[in-house]
């Protein structure tokens, strides 16, 4: 499996280079770019990033494996990330989790058989004032209730 950036991204990288004093700083932006292009980050993609950033591929691997938001394997079409930290826990996160698990028939960390949903629990997403909350891909769903989540899941099915 080989990897290359698409033309739009190659143009983007050229512009982005001018913004930083060293190409090493492109590491995180390019990891994001790969994930947005491919859905996850393969070892081949890391080798490609190494060329652009003038770093050994191992350094890219070290960085990629440190940050929890980088998917090193494919995830479902809709990645449900339910916040599990204190304010959400105090405001009923457990009920929401039980409902999702039952409805989608998956455990935390699993993907539905049709590849549509992946469920993970994540640490504080900075929405404590509208707890409980979850993020599906990049979209925040705040002040969750069972009725609300029922609707959200239905719409995505």
């Amino acid at each position: 499996m080989s990897f290359s950036f698409n033309d739009i991204n190659i143009t983007k990288i050229e512009n982005l280079k001018k913004r930083y004093p060293s190409p090493k700083a492109l590491t995180l932006p390019l990891l994001w770019m790969v994930q947005e292009q491919e859905g996850f980050i393969s070892l081949e993609a890391m080798e490609e990033i190494a060329k652009y950033t003038t770093r050994p591929a191992m350094e890219i691997y070290k960085t990629a494996t440190f940050y929890t938001m980088f998917n090193l394997a494919p995830v479902g079409e809709h990645h449900i990330q339910l916040c599990k930290t204190l304010s959400c826990a105090l405001c009923g996160k457990d009920d929401i989790l039980a409902y999702i698990k039952e409805t989608l028939d998956i455990e935390v960390g699993e993907t539905t058989k049709d590849g549509k949903f992946t469920l993970t629990q994540v640490e504080c997403l900075g929405s404590c004032g509208t707890a409980p909350m979850m993020q599906i891909n990049q979209t925040n769903h705040e002040s969750l209730s069972i009725e609300k989540i029922e609707k959200i899941l239905e719409e995505l099915q």
Binding site: T27, K62, T63, Y67, F70, C124
Partner: peptide, 29 residues
């Protein structure tokens, strides 16, 4: 003045200023 947004990737510790700079340099936080 040029302003560039640099996106982190889910590491709480990068809020610590020196870890943030490590991350901004492309490394682990």
């Amino acid at each position: 003045l040029d302003i560039t947004i640099h996106r982190g990737a889910g590491a709480y510790i990068c809020g610590e200023k020196s870890a943030l700079l490590e991350s901004l340099e492309g490394k682990r936080g």
